[in-house]
């Protein structure tokens, strides 16, 4: 047997047990928070969890596979509208959306099937859009996905019968609570973690590091890129759907280019490809921009938080271009969850 890998590869059970324990502890903290803190803080926490989930899901493309995509808000918009139309109370659809096709006008789904369908629709869109768009590299891909945001926005503005145009849908049932947001974040983190530390994840990173070499060791890079893009789109759509069921309104401008920028900043500051980094950066930026809001209002400098986020990005790019954790994960976390067997310095 080889000298390089120990005969006793650590059992996956250990990683699962650690993950379950940490998740349980976090759940206890969430329970405590929602029992003791104000509604405002609880909602803020839910938004924070969703932002963390979004940043982690952007890592599939921008982190692991090295595709600089800005398309997240497009898929979130798709997910938001699809889910909102599906969960909207049947009796109010007649007044709000009189032009709705028969089968949509008579359905009223609960949240879980609605967000799953929303995710699936966005995944199909990503699949179709991916064929031309993923042929592009670097800035070209960024610009193309930026265009996708604009296309989806104008579609949402002009497809009146389904979307109610520019005024958007209001009074969406407030079905998302902190537990939905928390649970979804855990699902996204677990999925990202499992993929990152698997053969498929290595294939993604190989595609990022050197596409030609990846092809030549038998990795179908077109397929891998598509997979990352579709996965990211699915999770983005579900997050977009959950968020509008928290703020109970969606317009074509709910998820804009600015959000794409903020999400990219979270990924870059956390370290492209780092899951824990994305969670930390997303949490920090969410809390920071919320904490600065009263300051903005008192001083009368609206948009200051956005300026600070942009400055933070410039600082990080200047002082630590690889972000908080580079493309890796902090060692203690890797040890705990079993992602440490093949990486650098065990």
């Amino acid at each position: 047997m080889s000298k390089t890998v120990p005969d006793e590869t650590p059992l996956p059970i250990r990683g699962f047990a650690a993950a379950a324990l940490v998740a349980a502890a976090a759940a206890a903290a969430v329970w405590l928070a929602q029992a003791s803190l104000s509604d405002y803080v609880v909602t803020l926490l839910a938004v924070l969890f969703l932002n963390a989930a979004l940043a982690v899901s952007l890592n599939f493309t921008n982190g692991f596979t090295g595709l600089f995509s800005l398309g997240h808000p497009a898929f979130m918009t798709i997910g938001a509208y699809v889910a909102a139309i599906l969960t909207f109370p049947e009796r109010r659809k007649g007044t709000m959306l009189p032009g709705l096709p028969e089968f949509l006008a008579t359905t009223e789904l609960s949240l879980l099937p609605a967000i799953l369908i929303a995710g699936a629709v966005a995944a199909v869109v990503a699949l179709i859009v991916g064929f031309p768009v993923l042929r592009l590299r670097g800035h070209y891909l960024a610009v193309a996905t930026l265009g996708l945001i604009v296309i989806i926005q104008s579609l949402a503005t002009n497809w009146d019968t389904i979307t109610r145009g520019g005024s958007g849908l209001s009074g969406i049932p407030r079905l998302t609570g902190i537990w939905w947001a928390f649970g979804f974040m855990l699902v996204v983190i677990a999925a990202a973690w499992r993929i990152k530390f698997s053969s498929l994840g290595r294939a993604m990173m190989a595609t990022r590091e050197n596409e030609l070499a990846a092809e030549c060791v038998g990795i179908d890079t077109v397929r891998v890129r598509m997979l990352a893009f579709v996965l990211g789109a699915f999770f983005a759509a579900v997050a977009g759907a959950l968020l509008v069921h928290l703020i109970s309104v969606v317009t074509p401008r709910t998820y804009s280019v600015l959000l794409a920028f903020n999400l990219v900043v979270m990924v870059v500051i956390g370290g492209s490809g780092s899951i824990i980094g994305a969670v930390i950066a997303a949490s920090a930026i969410t809390v920071l921009s919320e904490a600065l809001r009263p300051v903005e209002e008192s001083v009368g400098l609206y948009g200051m938080s956005q300026v600070i986020v942009a400055l933070a990005l410039i600082l990080v790019l200047y002082l630590r271009p690889q972000g908080l954790f580079g493309s890796g994960e902090p060692m203690i976390v890797r040890r705990l969850f079993g992602g440490d067997r093949f990486g650098q310095t065990p």
Binding site: L200, A203, N210, A214, G218, L231
Partner: peptide, 25 residues
């Protein structure tokens, strides 16, 4: 030389095994 620079030497070699033995999504 075209290596996957950010991955360890072992991970580079493991990438070569993906095609034959890697699991699906």
């Amino acid at each position: 030389i075209r290596l996957f620079s950010d991955l360890s030497a072992l991970e580079n070699v493991m990438c070569g095994g993906h095609m034959r033995h890697g699991s699906s999504l």
